Amino acid sequence: MKKNSIIVILSIIGLMLPFVSHADANEIPPQGSKLLSAIIKTAEGQHHGSIFEAEFEDGLWEVKICDTSVCQKLYLDPQTGKEVRQRKTDCDEIPPAGSMPISKIIQSVEAQGLGIITGFEFDDGFWEVKLRKDGRKVKLIIDPMTGESTALSMKKRTLSDDQMQRATSHLSQSQDVNRNNEPNIRR
């Protein structure tokens, strides 16, 4: 009886594994994607307001932006940067006036080669930039006024060989970013 229970449990776990790895694959922009800094810079130019969050989910960049009265979630194609759709959303905390543009901060993180950026958000007065590097989730805490990193946290997370290959390819693209006039991100 115990053997049958163990076999059933292991079978269920085995059936769930493809869904878990598929979910992880959807958290990383595909090979050939535009750099997030370029996508965000375009969104900053096309929409009036403050970008306060972005996350790569279900194959698209979900970017939240607020002006004085309306907040929207833009769904952007990672390979072209073009808007696929948008919808109204609630506004969270936005960066203070005089903050560095988030596109410059993201460009600096990309240039540092710290990992693949999977999202960012403005929370408790700081930018939290989420990355994947060497099978780990990494989070940078960045001052919005200076662009300097104040903290770093890591969680181990195993990625499949395919995901690691995509990550390595994406990182090599991000290291080609122009490194002039960028904020100082300390490790």
Score class of each variant (00 low, 15 high):
Pro78Ala: 04
Glu83Lys: 13
Lys64Cys: 08
Phe52Lys: 02
Thr146Leu: 00
Glu44Cys: 06
Lys104Gln: 11
Lys64Asn: 14
Pro78Lys: 03
Asp124Pro: 06
Gly115Arg: 03
Ser99Ile: 14
Leu15Glu: 02
Lys130Met: 05
Asp24Arg: 02
Arg166Ser: 08
Val20Asn: 03
Cys66Phe: 02
Ile6Glu: 10
Gln112Ala: 14
Val20Ile: 15
Glu44Tyr: 02
Tyr75Trp: 13
Val70Gln: 11
Ser160Gln: 06
Pro144Met: 00
Ala38Asp: 15
Asn184Gln: 12
Asp176Phe: 13
Arg186Gln: 09
Phe126His: 11
Gln173Arg: 11
Arg157Glu: 15
Gly125Arg: 04
Cys91Leu: 01
Ala38Glu: 15
Phe52Thr: 02
Ile40Lys: 07
Ile94Pro: 04
Glu121Arg: 14
Leu15Gly: 14
Glu148Ile: 12
Val177Gly: 01
Arg136Gly: 07
Asp123Asn: 08
Pro96Phe: 11
Lys64Ser: 15
Asn184Gly: 03
Phe19Thr: 05
Phe52Gly: 00
Phe52Val: 00
Met16Ser: 10
Lys73Gly: 11
Gly113Tyr: 04
Met164Asp: 01
Gly32Pro: 02
Arg136Trp: 04
Ser174Ile: 08
Pro18Lys: 11
Leu131Asp: 04
Gly113Cys: 08
Arg179Lys: 15
Ile142His: 06
Ile28Tyr: 02
Gly115Leu: 06
Asp143Pro: 13
Gly98Gln: 11
Met164Pro: 02
Glu53Pro: 06
Cys71Phe: 09
Ala25Glu: 08
Pro18Asp: 12
